[in-house]
């Protein structure tokens, strides 16, 4: 076995990264955010790569204590890419150490953006929406189904993200950041997110206008009148109203409280 083979990372080393990365945000702080978590995650791999080069290891650790923040699942492709670079540096000394830092920095922004829109605003709402629709009447099936389908994505992204990016190494970064792919990926996920959001506004926002207009056989609830114009019109308007409010800089908390107050006033005057 040559020295190079002995020092390059194995599946076992990467598995360690896989598990440690799940504690990425343990020491999240305002100064350097996920920096210490990042360093903690790849520390065993660095120790192996730099073996008995104490000075090299110290430099690598310090390099990986720099500011870092991204979407937690999307950190994995970054772990893989930077480890491929660290390995190259440790074994062949033919890349500039500062390029590792700059790759890290250039990846974390766009990956956070994609991860946020993909996971927090698309996959999570869809999975939770499916779970909620199965949880009617307090059925535990809903929560269980949510956990299963959601984690196919969270575990899959971490595993594939780490191993594929390590294999593809530096190539991966160029592939992703050097083109219009990022924008296209964002647009495609946004389309899915928006359409699902449309369904959820229609089916999950409920404004029960029980107020009765007219008398006797002419009596109609307000709800019935609006449904005649267009079903789900009020939920749509409320959702769009909130969207406008937020665009104008209103905070979510303020709007939540406003809606609660309106609901209570509505109930007191008999609107609902």
């Amino acid at each position: 076995m040559t020295n190079t083979e002995k020092l390059s990372l194995t599946k076992k080393d990467l598995n360690k990264v896989l598990f440690r990365g799940m504690l990425l945000q343990l020491s999240w702080n305002y100064e350097r955010m996920q920096a210490l978590g990042y360093c903690y995650t790849i520390l065993p791999a660095l120790k192996k790569l730099y073996n008995d080069d104490q000075e090299g290891l110290r430099k690598a650790v310090e390099r990986n204590l720099e500011f870092f923040n991204t979407q937690p699942y999307m950190a994995y492709p970054i772990f893989g890419t930077t480890l491929a670079m660290e390995e190259r540096l440790a074994l062949y000394h033919d890349i500039d150490p500062s390029s590792i830092s700059s790759v890290k920095v250039s990846m974390m922004g766009p990956f956070a953006g994609i991860g946020d829109s993909l996971f927090w605003f698309t996959i999570f709402p869809i999975c939770a929406g499916i779970g909620i629709s199965l949880a009617t009447g307090g059925s535990i099936l809903g929560p269980i189904v949510f956990l299963i389908i959601y984690n196919v994505f969270t575990i899959g992204t971490r595993y594939i993200g780490l191993f594929q990016s390590y294999r593809m190494g530096i190539n991966f970064v160029e592939k992703l950041s050097g083109s219009a792919v990022m924008q296209r990926l964002t647009e495609a996920t946004t389309i899915i997110g928006l359409m699902v959001l449309g369904v959820m506004s229609a089916t999950m926002v409920k404004v029960p206008l029980d107020y009765v207009v007219g008398e006797g056989t002419q009596a109609m609830t307000l709800q019935g009148i609006f449904d005649g114009v267009m079903p789900n019109l009020i939920p749509l308007l409320v959702t769009l109203g909130i969207y406008m409010g937020m665009k104008k800089g209103q905070s979510a908390t303020k709007l939540l409280l406003l809606l609660i107050v309106i609901s209570i006033i509505g109930a007191v005057i008999g609107l609902f």
């Binding site: 605003f121 709402p125 997110g193 928006l194 959001l197 959820m200 506004s201 999950m204 926002v205 409920k206 404004v207 029960p208 939920p235 409320v238 959702t239 769009l240 109203g241 909130i242 969207y243 409010g245 937020m246 665009k247 979510a252 709007l255 939540l256 809606l259 609660i260 309106i262 609901s263 209570i264 509505g266 109930a267 609902f272």
Partner: peptide
């Protein structure tokens, strides 16, 4: 009632 209306806040936020 507000339990039915409040999801609009989450959805409005997702929209932004």
């Amino acid at each position: 009632v507000s339990g039915g209306i409040l999801p609009a806040v989450g959805f409005g936020m997702l929209l932004t």
